[in-house]
Amino acid sequence: MSLLSIDHLYYWVIVILLMLGMYSMIAKPNLLKKLAGLSIFQSAIFLFYISLGKQTGGTAPIIAPGYDTYANPLPHVLMLTAIVVGVATVALGYALIIRIRDAYDSMEEDQIREQDDQA
């Protein structure tokens, strides 16, 4: 099976991480855990991109004597941007969670729903 070969191993890892993150985002009632799931989901995407840039035997893409294979730097650059975005997202998420806890005195989604329905 080519899908299970070692070449595809990191794709499997990435898919498992994606699933874990999404499960946590959807199924956990705790807002912090949802955000953690989001973070895992994004990290899996970073891994995916970085695996795209791999060249067997390649070094860092800075021209130096003695090397002629370089890793593809583009995915890394893209991920740098995506990581910045991810940091900003998570920070904003935490800020929102803190304010939600101030307003509702809870971080569980079902309890918050209950309070909203009563109001």
Partner: peptide, 14 residues
């Protein structure tokens, strides 16, 4: 509004 923003954050980022 806070919960709306948080939920939009989750689904938007997804």
């Amino acid at each position: 509004a806070l919960m709306a923003a948080f939920q939009y954050l989750l689904s938007g980022t997804l």
